[in-house]
């Protein structure tokens, strides 16, 4: 298992200048094609951990390796690394001054220097994949939250990443739109994409994850495959947390 690890975080700590410790020595390994869901109460450090994986957040000590590259080493070309690691945000963060299609095309054209035609046809295919081919020429402001998040997923996929990070992708959505986004994510998982998902959607975690991680107080408290994780939680704090969210 260790040999196949695409992501390997070792003893990662993160201290903010004001003294709060967001991460207190976290070890995490994710294999190629594995789907890992990270759950936990707010402030537990789960989003911070996710964001250290593509250096959107710096770390205080420890090491993060992604596909054999040390993410936080000074010599690492972060822009290049990030093309391999797609990220989807809670607030979508689509570019409001561009159409859905232009949102998806921007990075392939400007970062990978793909020609216009190639970028466009790939973007069209991706929008079709997330079920939004008919919204290609619409600006984000005219899309629903669920549609915006699906465009954001297409945008991240446009760089053909090997890993996808999801930071609470459905938390800012109205309940009736959660399903359409989770459907797209399930498709991705089925295709064998390596995924790290910070989520509050226990149903999704149970159905799709290969492994579920419970974080609290900046540490990983418990990790297990979904079946034992949810059906027989062996950990006290996890039991209390699940009791709260599943109530």
């Amino acid at each position: 298992m260790n040999d196949k690890a695409l992501i390997r975080a070792t003893a990662v700590t993160k201290c903010y200048p004001n003294g709060t410790q967001a991460l207190k020595g976290v070890d995490l390994q994710v294999s190629r094609g594995e789907v890992v869901c990270i759950i936990g109460p707010s402030g537990s450090g789960k989003s911070t951990l996710l964001r250290t994986l593509n250096a959107m957040e710096s770390i205080t000590s420890g090491e993060v390796m992604v596909d054999g590259v040390s993410v936080h080493a000074r010599s690492t070309d972060l822009n290049r690394l990030r093309t391999q690691v797609g990220m989807v945000f809670q607030q979508f963060n689509l570019f409001p001054h561009m159409t859905a299609l232009e949102n998806v095309m921007l990075a392939p054209m400007r970062v990978s220097k793909r020609p216009l035609d190639e970028a466009r046809s790939r973007a069209e295919k991706l929008l079709q994949k997330v079920g939004l081919a008919d919204k290609a020429h619409v600006h984000p402001g005219q899309l629903s939250g669920g549609q915006q998040q699906r465009v954001a997923i297409a945008r991240a996929l446009a760089m053909q990443p090997t890993i996808m990070l999801f930071d609470e992708p459905t938390s800012a959505l109205d309940p009736e739109m959660v399903g359409e986004v989770l459907e797209v994510m399930k498709d991705l998982a089925r295709e064998g994409m390596t995924m790290c998902v910070v989520t509050h959607e226990m149903g999704f975690a149970r159905a799709v994850a290969h492994r579920v991680i419970f974080m609290d107080g900046g540490q990983i408290q418990h990790e297990a495959p979904p079946q034992p994780f949810f059906d027989a939680p062996s950990h006290d704090r996890l039991r209390a947390f699940l009791g709260q969210v599943l109530k």
């Binding site: 593509n54 959107m56 822009n79 290049r80 690394l81 990030r82 093309t83 690691v85 797609g86 990220m87 945000f89 607030q91 963060n93 689509l94 570019f95 921007l106 990075a107 400007r110 970062v111 990978s112 954001a152 945008r155 991240a156 760089m159």
Partner: peptide, 22 residues
């Protein structure tokens, strides 16, 4: 919003590219 810069950087854009295009 900060998220605009973050989303751009997460796609592999440099700071200058994110400024210029986004």
């Amino acid at each position: 919003p900060r998220g605009q810069m973050e989303a751009s950087r997460s796609l592999g854009m440099s700071y200058a590219q994110a400024m210029r295009y986004v």
